[in-house]
Simulated scan of single mutants.
Amino acid sequence: MKIHDYIIVDDDPTNNLICKLVIEKFDSNANVTVFQQPEQALSYFQSLVKKEAQKKIVLFLDVNMPTMTGWDFLDKFQMFDSSIKNMFEIYILTSAIEDFELEKTKYPMVKAFLSKPLRKSTLQELELNFTS
């Protein structure tokens, strides 16, 4: 079964639009939610109830945001109940050219580090991870 729920957390409205369009082209049944403020995404995650815990959500997270970095976001995310954390497949989406070796160790819940802009071919490569 293909995942149809996607969340983008990025302060850049242009990148968010590109991501949303690429995801919808990849998955015509996609339900894409966008948060430009990471704090709002964290509040939304806290509101998820256990009955939703069976669904899988793909999260595309930017690293460089002005009010909270992606790393700060993940630090707060790690404090959530495991029933919420297990709902997510997390992908870092960044324009940075760093290798993030330290972060790969510190944040094992991140499935992959992807370059901006998101491309349909990237989603196709990851599709094996999207099946259950």
Rank of each mutant, 00 (worst) to 15 (best):
Q78K: 08
D11C: 04
Q36R: 09
S83N: 11
K20R: 03
L102M: 12
A96T: 12
L48C: 08
A41H: 10
D72W: 05
P13I: 12
E103D: 09
L59H: 09
T105R: 11
D27H: 15
E103M: 04
F88M: 02
D11T: 14
I90P: 01
Q54K: 15
C19I: 05
I92R: 01
T67E: 05
L48Q: 08
Q40Y: 03
T69P: 01
Q37G: 00
A41G: 10
D99S: 10
G70P: 09
E98C: 13
D75C: 03
S95N: 13
F26A: 02
L59Q: 12
K50Q: 13
L21N: 09
K106F: 08
L61D: 05
V58S: 00
Y44G: 10
D12Q: 05
Y91P: 00
Q36K: 10
W71G: 03
M79Y: 07
I90L: 12
S43P: 09
D27M: 15
A41W: 12
M87P: 06
T105G: 06
T14I: 15
D12R: 03
F26W: 15
L93G: 00
Q40A: 08
D10M: 09
K85A: 03
K85Y: 01
Q40V: 03
L61H: 12
N64W: 10
V22G: 00
L102C: 11
K50P: 07
C19L: 02
T14P: 00
Y44I: 07
I97Y: 04
M79T: 09
F26I: 07
D99M: 09
G70F: 14
L42R: 05
A96C: 06
M109K: 09
L59V: 13
I7S: 04
T94Q: 04
K55C: 01
A53S: 11
Y107Q: 08
V32Q: 11
L102W: 11
M68P: 00
I57Q: 13
N31A: 05
S83K: 06
L17Y: 13
M87T: 08
Y107E: 07
K111S: 10
F73C: 01
V34H: 02
Y91V: 11
M109L: 08
N31I: 14
